[in-house]
Lab assay of single mutants.
Amino acid sequence: TEIRININGVTIHVRDASEELKKLIEHLLRLGADEKEIREVLHRWEK
């Protein structure tokens, strides 16, 4: 699944996002995570 996240005008594009990762990101956004925090989570997730 491919997702695009727009945070304050900055688009983060994620290829091959699992449903689990998608739910995690949606949850973090609801909690008010910023772009830097989302990128950090994505970076750690890929490892």
Rank of each mutant, 00 (worst) to 15 (best):
L29M: 11
E40T: 12
L28T: 02
V41R: 05
L24Q: 13
E20D: 10
E19N: 09
R39M: 06
V10Y: 02
H43T: 11
E46L: 15
K36E: 09
G32I: 01
K23I: 11
H27M: 14
L21V: 05
R30V: 06
I38A: 00
D34E: 08
V41G: 01
H27F: 15
G32W: 03
T1F: 14
H13V: 10
K23V: 12
L24V: 13
R44A: 12
V10G: 06
E19H: 10
I25V: 09
I3Y: 09
I25D: 00
E19Y: 15
H27E: 08
T1G: 10
G32L: 02
H27S: 13
G9Q: 06
L21H: 01
L21T: 02
L21I: 06
E26H: 15
A33D: 01
E37D: 09
E37G: 07
H43L: 14
E40A: 14
K47P: 11
I5F: 04
L24K: 09
I5N: 01
S18D: 09
R44K: 09
E20F: 10
T11D: 05
I12N: 01
H13C: 12
L29W: 10
R44F: 09
N6M: 12
I3L: 13
W45M: 04
I12L: 05
K36T: 10
K47L: 15
K23N: 12
L31D: 04
S18H: 06
A33N: 03
H43Y: 14
K36W: 13
T1D: 09
V14W: 08
E35I: 11
L29C: 04
I7C: 05
R15M: 13
E37R: 12
D34K: 08
I38G: 00
N8T: 04
G32K: 08
K23Y: 13
H13T: 11
E20C: 07
V10Q: 08
H13F: 13
V41H: 05
D34Q: 08
N6Q: 11
V10R: 08
R30C: 02
I7T: 04
H13N: 07
D16N: 14
V14R: 01
G32C: 02
K36M: 11
R44S: 07
R39E: 05
V14H: 04
I3K: 02
L21S: 00
G32E: 03
E40H: 11
S18T: 10
E20A: 11
V14Y: 05
L31H: 09
R15I: 10
L24I: 12
R4A: 12
L28K: 06
E40M: 15
V10K: 10
E35H: 08
A17Y: 07
I25T: 01
E19L: 13
K36C: 02
E35G: 05
I38E: 00
E2W: 02
E46G: 15
E26G: 09
G32V: 02
W45V: 03
R4F: 14
K36Y: 12
K47I: 15
I25L: 12
E35K: 02
R15W: 14
D16I: 06
N6S: 11
I38C: 01
L24N: 06
R39C: 05
E2D: 13
R39D: 15
G32H: 05
K22R: 12
E19I: 09
E37T: 14
R4V: 13
N8A: 09
I25Q: 00
V14S: 03
A33Y: 07
I3M: 11
L21Q: 03
L31V: 07
R4W: 13
L29H: 02
E35N: 03
I38P: 00
V41T: 13
T11M: 12
T11A: 10
E20H: 04
I7M: 09
R4T: 11
R15V: 11
L42Q: 00
K36R: 09
L24P: 00
A17P: 11
N8F: 03
I25N: 00
R4D: 07
T11Q: 10
V10I: 10
V41Y: 14
E26N: 14
A33M: 05
R39A: 04
S18P: 14
